[in-house]
């Protein structure tokens, strides 16, 4: 049962990178979804929500196709980095990003919708550009949504299995994350390792989620 530290580190690194990328990308997307009046909105919302309902194998299958060195994207990546997107850590980040997208976008969108346009209008009449008003008014008022989005993205990526297995395979030291380590351990009847990792993930996830709910509550009551 030694050697499980590497999958844990890979998992944490994957979750951290995915979370940072997701929050950066989801802020403008969620703001747009919360404020746009275009008829395209439901379609974009549906696309964002797809990973919630699709089996991870389906998502993973298409990612495998689109990221493979034969695809334009995969080929470009190979030319750029000398590495394939499939069966690599970079590919895992792309897969995790898409798989956790709704967990980042939806809390942000809800938060921005509850901020509403009133404060943004007030900021505009006080001389703030749209970007300035977003940074100084909408974002601070939606901070609970930002926190929720980040934590859910992180926790969801930690617990990911199917997409990672499809896109990244099971390469020790490279793409073998915690959930796959648990799977491998069970397959080889190494229940001790499986117990340790599973319990670890369970406790960690519980603590993170509790922290979010407590923080959110305190934040809500303090003002």
């Amino acid at each position: 049962m030694t050697g499980f530290l590497t999958p844990v580190l890979i998992t944490l690194k994957l979750a951290a990178m995915t979370t940072v990328l997701l929050v950066i990308f989801s802020l403008p997307l969620a703001w747009w979804l919360a404020t746009t009046r275009t008829r395209l909105r439901p379609l974009v919302e549906a696309v964002v929500a797809l990973p919630l309902v699709l089996p991870p194998t389906v998502l993973g299958f298409y990612l495998l196709i689109f990221l493979s060195p034969e695809s334009p994207l995969g080929a470009a990546w190979v030319r750029l980095t000398g590495e394939t997107l499939t069966f690599s850590f970079s590919g895992l980040v792309v897969g995790s990003f898409l798989y956790s997208l709704p967990f980042a976008v939806q809390p942000l969108q809800t938060a921005f919708q509850s901020v509403g346009t009133g404060y943004m209008e007030a900021a505009a009449t006080l001389g703030a550009t749209r970007l300035d008003a977003f940074r100084s008014v909408a974002l601070p008022l939606a901070r609970r949504g930002v926190l929720t989005a980040a934590v859910l993205s992180f926790a969801h990526t930690l617990g990911e299995f199917g997409v990672v297995l499809m896109v990244g395979g099971n390469i020790p030291g490279k793409t073998r994350v915690l959930s796959i380590e648990v799977f491998s351990a069970v397959e080889t009847l190494d229940y001790a390792t499986a117990h340790l990792l599973s319990a670890g993930l369970l406790v960690f996830s519980f603590l993170v989620l509790s922290a979010v709910y407590i923080l959110n509550r305190r934040d809500g009551a303090g003002r």
Partner: peptide
């Protein structure tokens, strides 16, 4: 709107809830 230089006092007030009064006054 931000180029017009209009001071708008809204019916529903709309003071920024994450800032104190001094910061609200200093904003514009």
């Amino acid at each position: 709107p931000h180029r017009r230089g209009i001071g708008f006092v809204f019916q529903d007030v709309r003071l920024f809830p994450h800032m104190d009064v001094a910061a609200n006054l200093a904003y514009g």
